[in-house]
Design a protein around this nucleic acid. Structure first.
Length: 115
DNA sequence: AAGTTGACGAAAT
DNA sequence: AATTTCGCCAACT
């Protein structure tokens, strides 16, 4: 018998109908002076897709407080280091000087938003 | 339609 | 410590 066994295994997790909307909603909820990492945003959605969060932010984040989402360790978004620093100083986000890389980073342990 | 890329991240090498 | 590999999901080619 030849019938092909599709063996379609269903995902053990719920399928998110709109990952994009949920990402933007979380970002919009981060209070001024605080930050979340890309991975944290994904984790709040029950996912590990930190990269997908970055992809969403690049295309749709322009109308949202994109500077409140940082990389692991508090490094600002790639390609917008200087732009983000202006926002952090205006919001009083705790920063830390670095001797390398963009020259500064957010003090993630202090600035991290805990919902 | 299938593969590649990308504001990422942690673990393995 | 640096580079590579894998994971996740949307957008682009």
């Amino acid at each position: 018998m030849s019938a092909e066994p599709p063996a379609a295994a269903e995902p053990p997790f719920e399928v998110r109908p709109s990952f994009v909307d949920e990402v933007l909603e979380v970002v919009d909820a981060i209070p001024a002076g605080h930050v979340l990492s890309y991975g944290d945003v994904a984790a709040l959605l029950g996912s590990r897709a930190a990269r997908a969060v970055g992809s969403v932010m690049r295309r749709y984040g322009h109308a949202h407080p994109w500077w409140r989402v940082v990389r692991s360790g508090g490094l600002p978004p790639t390609g917008h280091e200087a732009r983000a620093k202006t926002h952090y100083e205006a919001e009083g986000t705790p920063l830390r000087a670095l001797s390398r890389d963009p020259g500064y980073a957010v003090e993630y342990a202090k600035a991290r938003w805990r919902p």
